[in-house]
Amino acid sequence: MKGIQIEVCVNSDGNYQKAMQNAAELVAKVMKEEGIPISRVVQHNHFSGKNCYVLVEFWNQFISMVGACTGNTQQQKPVTNNNKYRVMTGTYSTIQAAENVLDVLKHRFGWVSYIEPDGSKWRVKTGTFTGMDAAQAGANKIKAAKLAQVANVVGL
């Protein structure tokens, strides 16, 4: 019945890594002030049973970030994934709609991206991301910006 909950929110044009770093620093500060050991830092599904699909992928990395902020380097090692991935949107019925998304990905996000025909429709694909964490963050950014309802991560 006792706990401290922290929610991390990132605007569609925000910096996901910076938000996670800020959250790690906040968790480390609260741990120090309240005398909480890192072993007691848990995801909200520990209490609710609800899995946060984004944080599940990043949990080991996040705990390592918290450990680095506290000076505790005896943390779980994050799973290193050097595989290459690409984010692929759902289809657009017009080339103009796909070009509008492409413009945002290239000029606002600064990503390498391209359009590819898919039957009579169009699909936008990103360049490669290294690691599932980075690719999933990219897919989430596309969805949060409302550029696509569907953004799938595909391995290369």
Results as ranks from 00 to 15, higher is better:
residue 3 G to I: 00
residue 4 I to E: 04
residue 4 I to K: 02
residue 4 I to N: 04
residue 4 I to W: 03
residue 4 I to A: 03
residue 5 Q to L: 09
residue 6 I to L: 15
residue 6 I to Q: 11
residue 7 E to D: 14
residue 10 V to C: 14
residue 10 V to H: 00
residue 11 N to Q: 12
residue 14 G to H: 05
residue 15 N to Y: 11
residue 16 Y to E: 05
residue 17 Q to Y: 11
residue 18 K to I: 08
residue 19 A to D: 00
residue 20 M to T: 01
residue 20 M to V: 08
residue 20 M to R: 12
residue 20 M to N: 01
residue 22 N to D: 09
residue 23 A to K: 10
residue 28 A to E: 01
residue 28 A to Y: 05
residue 31 M to T: 02
residue 33 E to L: 05
residue 34 E to H: 10
residue 37 P to N: 14
residue 38 I to V: 11
residue 44 H to V: 15
residue 46 H to D: 01
residue 46 H to T: 08
residue 48 S to F: 07
residue 48 S to R: 00
residue 49 G to F: 13
residue 50 K to N: 13
residue 52 C to A: 08
residue 52 C to E: 01
residue 53 Y to E: 05
residue 56 V to W: 00
residue 56 V to L: 08
residue 56 V to D: 00
residue 57 E to D: 12
residue 57 E to S: 11
residue 57 E to A: 13
residue 58 F to E: 01
residue 58 F to H: 06
residue 59 W to N: 01
residue 61 Q to V: 08
residue 66 V to P: 02
residue 66 V to D: 02
residue 66 V to T: 06
residue 67 G to K: 03
residue 68 A to C: 07
residue 68 A to I: 10
residue 69 C to I: 01
residue 70 T to M: 15
residue 73 T to K: 09
residue 73 T to H: 14
residue 78 P to W: 12
residue 79 V to S: 10
residue 81 N to C: 07
residue 82 N to G: 09
residue 83 N to S: 13
residue 83 N to V: 04
residue 86 R to W: 06
residue 87 V to Q: 09
residue 90 G to Y: 09
residue 91 T to A: 12
residue 93 S to C: 08
residue 94 T to R: 10
residue 94 T to K: 06
residue 96 Q to M: 10
residue 96 Q to T: 15
residue 101 V to G: 15
residue 102 L to S: 05
residue 102 L to E: 07
residue 103 D to V: 03
residue 105 L to G: 07
residue 105 L to K: 09
residue 106 K to W: 00
residue 106 K to C: 07
residue 107 H to M: 02
residue 108 R to H: 11
residue 111 W to K: 08
residue 115 I to F: 13
residue 116 E to T: 15
residue 117 P to D: 03
residue 119 G to N: 12
residue 119 G to W: 14
residue 120 S to F: 04
residue 120 S to W: 02
residue 121 K to C: 14
residue 121 K to E: 15
residue 121 K to A: 14
residue 122 W to D: 03
residue 122 W to G: 02
residue 125 K to A: 03
residue 125 K to H: 14
residue 125 K to T: 03
residue 126 T to V: 06
residue 126 T to W: 06
residue 127 G to T: 06
residue 128 T to Q: 06
residue 129 F to H: 09
residue 130 T to V: 15
residue 131 G to C: 00
residue 132 M to N: 09
residue 133 D to E: 12
residue 135 A to D: 01
residue 136 Q to I: 13
residue 143 K to G: 02
residue 144 A to Q: 07
residue 145 A to Y: 06
residue 146 K to G: 02
residue 147 L to D: 11
